[in-house]
Computed example of a mutant assay.
Amino acid sequence: MAKARTQTIGAVRRTFSPWTDPSATPLIRFENVVKSFGAFTAVNHVSLDIYEREFFALLGPSGCGKTTLMRMLAGFEEPTEGRITLAGQDLTGVPPYERPVNMMFQSYALFPHMSVADNIAFGPKQAGMGKGEIAARVEEMLALVKLESFAKRKPHQLSGGQRQRVALARAVANRPKVLLLDEPLGALDKKLREETQFELMDLQQSLGMTFLIVTHDQEEAMTVADRIAVMNHGVLVQVDPPATIYEQPATKYVADFIGDVNIIACKVEGCFGSDLRLATSLTPHPLQVTHSGDQKPGDEVWLAIRPEKMRISLDAPDAAAGNCFEGEIWDIGYLGDLSVYHVELPCGTRIKVSQPNLSRVVERPITWEDKVYVTFTPHAGVVLSR
C-alpha cells in the first residue's frame, strides 16, 4: 500500500521525515535537560528528538544555549537535570572518548606538524585499526573530500576551504554515529561558505550519518538542515523543517529572527471562516488576511509579512486589489538580483518591500521620494498571537 503524501510548505530537499512517523525511534533524545552555571541557566528544560541520518541545526543568537546543548551531547558538560540518550544508551557519566560522536570545531584544530593524510589517519590509529585498513580509510576520506593530490601537504600549505575539508575528513574517518559541527564554516568567505554548504549536504547523505550543526547563520541553517531548532534564552522556541520555520513561524521572535520581515501590530475586527479582518494604525482601511488560528474579535495580534511577498507600484491599484499601503520611498538598496525598497507610511512607520530585478532596463524605475502603493494578498502574511 502506498504511503500517503505528507503536506509540505515550500521547497523540499529530500523525501526524509522520520519525525512525522509516530513509530520512528529517535537516535538522540534530550529529556527535560537543564544546564545551570551558578545562578545562570544556559539550557532550560529542553526536550528534543533527533533521528538517524538527519541533518539537524541548532540555531540562535550568541548565548542562547545551543553550544551548551551540543557540548552536553559530546560529553564536555554534564546536565544539571534531565538526561541525554544516544541509540537508547543513557550518556550520564560516559566520558567523551567513549561516546560514538565526534566534533568538528570552528578552528579546525589540525595538527600543524602532520600531513593531510596523517591528520586523517590519527583517529583510526587511536582506534587500533590495522595499517592496511588505515591506508584504505585515508584514501577513501581523501576521495570523499576531493583532496587526493594534497595528501602529503601540511595544513599551512592549504587554503581555508581545503583545511575545512581535511578537518571534516578527520572527523568522520572513525565513522561516528553522530558528527557535531560547531560553526564549521565561520572562518570561510561568503562565496566559499555557500559552496561548502552544499558539499556538506552531499557528504552527509553519502555517509548516511547524523549531523548536528550549531550556527547563528540563518541562511546556513536553512540551506543544510532537514530540521531547525530555534533557541532563545536556553529554550526551544520552534522545531520544524526550514520552509515551515520561514513560512509559518510560531512566534514573533522566530519571524523576526529568520530573514527579513515586516511585523505589524493589529487588532482583530472580525472573523469570516478562514479570513480575519484586522485593524491597524498603518492604514485607515482594514486588512483582510487568511488564517487558520483561533483568534477572535478584539484580540491583539501581529501580522508578519516577508518583503518578497509584497508588491510595489507607482500606480494606484484598483479596488479589487485588496490590502494596500500608501507611502513614499525613503531608501533603496540595489543588490543586483533584487532591489529592497524602504517605504515610509504617512504615520512615520517604514516597511520593506523586495522585488526581483527581472530586466536590465526599466522604463520608469522607482526612485527616492516617489509616492508608491504596496499591496499584498490575503494569504501573504502570517497572523501571530505571541
Rank of each mutant, 00 (worst) to 15 (best):
G270L: 00
L144N: 15
E199C: 05
W19E: 12
D294S: 12
L358Q: 10
A167Y: 00
G75L: 01
F257P: 12
V301K: 02
L27E: 09
V239P: 11
A279L: 04
Q248A: 10
R5M: 13
G38A: 02
L192V: 15
Q355V: 14
F272A: 12
L188V: 12
G293H: 02
R350L: 09
L27G: 11
T283S: 09
G60C: 09
Q205K: 14
T210R: 06
V138I: 09
K3N: 13
D90R: 10
T92R: 11
P124V: 05
D118A: 14
T8V: 12
V268K: 02
L158D: 00
V301M: 06
P95F: 00
S292G: 03
R277C: 01
V340T: 15
I84T: 06
E363P: 14
T67N: 03
P365S: 15
M104E: 00
D315Y: 03
L192H: 07
T41A: 09
V166H: 01
T290M: 00
K131A: 09
Y334N: 15
G270D: 04
P356R: 00
T375E: 01
T283R: 00
A173P: 03
N32Q: 14
A321M: 04
D337S: 08
E133H: 07
V230F: 04
A57E: 01
E148A: 09
H342Q: 10
G270N: 04
L58S: 02
Q197R: 15
N357K: 09
D294G: 00
N323V: 03
P184F: 02
L179V: 14
L207E: 02
Q288P: 01
Y108C: 07
P100W: 04
A279R: 14
E133G: 08
G333I: 06
R5F: 03
Q204K: 05
E139F: 11
E31F: 02
